[in-house]
C-alpha cells in the first residue's frame, strides 16, 4: 500500500524520504518556490513554498512528507503571504523587469505574475550594489540577486565553490571566490552548471542577449505552474 498525504483535499502519493515539495511535484501539484530546484539539496530560505501542514506553517521544500498529513497549499491566506514575500524580494533588490534581459525567463517575475502581484507595496530599499562584468562570458548584476544560493549549490556540484553568500541580515550579498573578488579571476567557466541556474537575472550569460525575443520566452508562453521544475531551472536566453 502506498502512502499518501492530502494537498488541498487531493490525495497525493509519496515514498519515504520525499519532501512535501517532491511529492507534490511528482503528482503535478505546483507549490510556488524560488530557492528550490530538484537537482540540489533543499535550502528552505525563500519561504515562498510555505504550506500549512496540520495547521502549522512549514517549508514544503524541506519538510518530509508523512502519512496522513493534511497540507494546505492554495488558500487565500497563503497566497497573500506568498505575495507579500515576493514583494519583499522585489523591494530588497533593484528589479526593473522592462529593462532586464531575463524578462520572460525570470522565475521571480513569473511567480509574481502567478501570485497576481500588482505592485511592490513596500517601500523600496534602493540597495546600492555593483555590477561585475569582468568575466568574458558571464556577468553578475547584484541588483537582482535574491540570495536563493542556487548558484552556490550548483558551483559546489561543479566542484568549484565559485559563489558564497556573505554578510548578515539585510546586508547579505553574493561573493565570488577569487583573489580579487571579481568573476574573471574565479574558476567559473561557461560550461558550468552555476552559469544557467539563477532564477532571476542576477547571473547572465553574455553574448546571447535577446536571442529569444520578448513574447516568446518560457513564461510568456506558459504560466509558471505549467512549467516543469527542470525546465524552470534551465530558463535562460538560449
Amino acid at each position: 500500500m502506498s502512502k499518501t498525504i492530502s494537498i488541498d483535499g487531493r490525495q497525493v502519493e509519496f515514498v519515504d524520504g520525499q519532501t512535501i515539495m517532491e511529492a507534490a511535484a511528482a503528482a503535478g501539484v505546483y507549490i510556488p518556490h524560488l530557492c528550490h530546484h530538484p537537482d540540489f539539496t533543499p535550502h528552505g530560505s525563500c519561504k515562498l513554498c510555505t504550506v500549512k501542514v496540520n495547521g502549522r506553517n512549514c517549508s514544503a521544500c524541506t519538510f518530509p512528507a508523512q502519512e496522513g498529513q493534511e497540507v494546505l497549499n492554495e488558500t487565500d491566506e497563503l497566497r497573500e503571504d506568498r505575495r507579500m514575500i515576493t514583494q519583499m524580494l522585489f523591494v530588497e533588490g533593484n528589479h526593473f523587469c522592462p529593462s532586464c534581459e531575463k524578462s520572460g525567463n525570470c522565475q521571480l517575475q513569473a511567480v509574481a505574475y502567478y501570485l497576481q502581484m500588482l505592485d511592490d507595496h513596500f517601500p523600496l530599499f534602493f540597495a546600492s550594489r555593483e555590477l561585475d562584468a569582468s568575466h568574458p562570458e558571464v556577468m553578475i548584476d547584484h541588483d537582482r540577486c535574491i540570495f536563493c544560493t542556487l548558484c552556490v549549490r550548483a558551483s559546489h556540484l561543479d566542484g568549484k565553490e565559485v559563489f558564497a553568500i556573505s554578510g548578515r541580515g539585510i546586508n547579505k550579498h553574493l561573493i565570488v571566490n577569487s583573489p580579487s573578488g571579481k568573476l574573471q579571476d574565479s574558476a567559473l567557466e561557461a560550461g558550468d552548471r552555476a552559469v544557467d541556474i539563477c532564477p532571476t537575472g542576477a547571473i547572465l550569460r553574455k553574448g546571447i542577449g535577446y536571442r529569444v525575443p520578448i513574447g516568446k520566452r518560457i513564461f510568456d508562453l506558459k504560466k509558471i505552474d505549467a512549467v516543469s521544475l527542470a525546465e524552470q531551472g534551465g530558463a535562460h536566453g538560449e
Binding site: C46, L89, V91, E92, F125, R168, G169, N171
Partner: peptide
C-alpha cells in the same frame, strides 16, 4: 531584531528591516 537577523530567510531578512522602517 533587524540588527541580529541572520538574513537566511526572506520574511525575517527583509521583514525585520521593513518593520523598522
Amino acid at each position: 531584531f533587524a540588527h541580529e537577523s541572520c538574513g537566511f530567510c526572506t520574511p525575517c531578512r527583509v521583514g525585520t528591516a521593513l518593520l523598522k522602517k
